[in-house]
Simulated scan of single mutants.
Amino acid sequence: MDLTGRTMVITGAGRGFGRALALHAGRLGAEVLVSARSLNAAQKVADEIAADSGASADAFACDLADPATVRAFAEGVTAHTDRVDILVNNGARYLEGPDLLDADDNAITDTIASGATGTLLTVKHFLPLLRASAHADVVNLVSAAAGPRDHRSQAHPAFYAAKAAQAGFADILSHRLRPEGIRVISLYPPDFTDGDPRHPAWDRAPRTAGDPLTAQSVLDCVLFALGQPRDCFIRSFHFEQL
Rank of each mutant, 00 (worst) to 15 (best):
A209D: 14
I49G: 00
R71Y: 11
L101I: 11
L213G: 04
R198W: 15
A103W: 05
V45S: 00
T117M: 08
L187I: 07
H24N: 09
F169A: 03
I108G: 05
I86V: 11
T11A: 06
A46S: 08
A215T: 07
R152Y: 09
Y160Q: 05
T208K: 13
F60A: 02
Q154M: 15
L3W: 05
N89M: 05
T7F: 06
V142D: 04
A65S: 11
D99G: 11
P190V: 06
T69D: 02
Q241T: 15
V45M: 00
L101G: 14
G54S: 09
W202V: 07
R37W: 06
H156P: 01
H24K: 10
L223T: 10
D2F: 14
G181K: 03
T7G: 00
R198P: 09
A134Y: 12
H151G: 14
F239W: 12
V184N: 01
H125G: 04
L21A: 06
L64G: 00
G97K: 03
A74D: 01
V70P: 01
D191R: 13
A22R: 02
S35A: 10
D110L: 05
P197N: 12
L100K: 06
S174E: 06
L120E: 09
V77F: 00
P148Y: 12
G91Y: 03
I86D: 01
L87M: 08
R19D: 02
G210I: 10
I182F: 06
D196Y: 11
P128Y: 07
P189I: 09
T214K: 03
P229Y: 11
A113C: 11
A155K: 03
Q154P: 13
A144M: 11
V32I: 07
L39P: 02
D211S: 13
H151S: 14
T193Y: 10
A68D: 09
A50M: 12
V45G: 00
A22G: 05
T119R: 04
D66Y: 00
D194T: 14
L219W: 05
A79I: 09
A46C: 07
H24L: 14
A20F: 01
T214N: 04
F17Q: 04
Q154I: 14
F224E: 15
D104V: 14
P157W: 07
A161R: 06
P212I: 07
T69P: 02
V218W: 00
N90H: 02
L33P: 00
D231M: 14
V218M: 05
Y188H: 10
A72T: 11
P179N: 08
R178H: 14
E180S: 10
Q166K: 08
D150C: 11
P157F: 06
Y188M: 08
D82T: 09
A155L: 05
S153Q: 10
A25H: 01
Q154C: 15
S217Q: 15
K124E: 02
A145M: 07
F237Y: 11
A225P: 09
R6D: 02
G29K: 03
R6C: 03
A132L: 10
L173V: 07
Y188A: 04
A164T: 06
F126R: 04
S174Y: 03
D85M: 09
H24V: 15
D2L: 12
H156V: 01
A107K: 06
F233V: 13
A205K: 12
T7E: 01
G29L: 01
F126S: 06
A50G: 08
A116L: 09
A25V: 03
V34C: 02
R207V: 12
D58Q: 10
D211L: 12
Y94N: 08
A65Q: 00
C62A: 09
L141N: 04
G29P: 01
R6M: 08
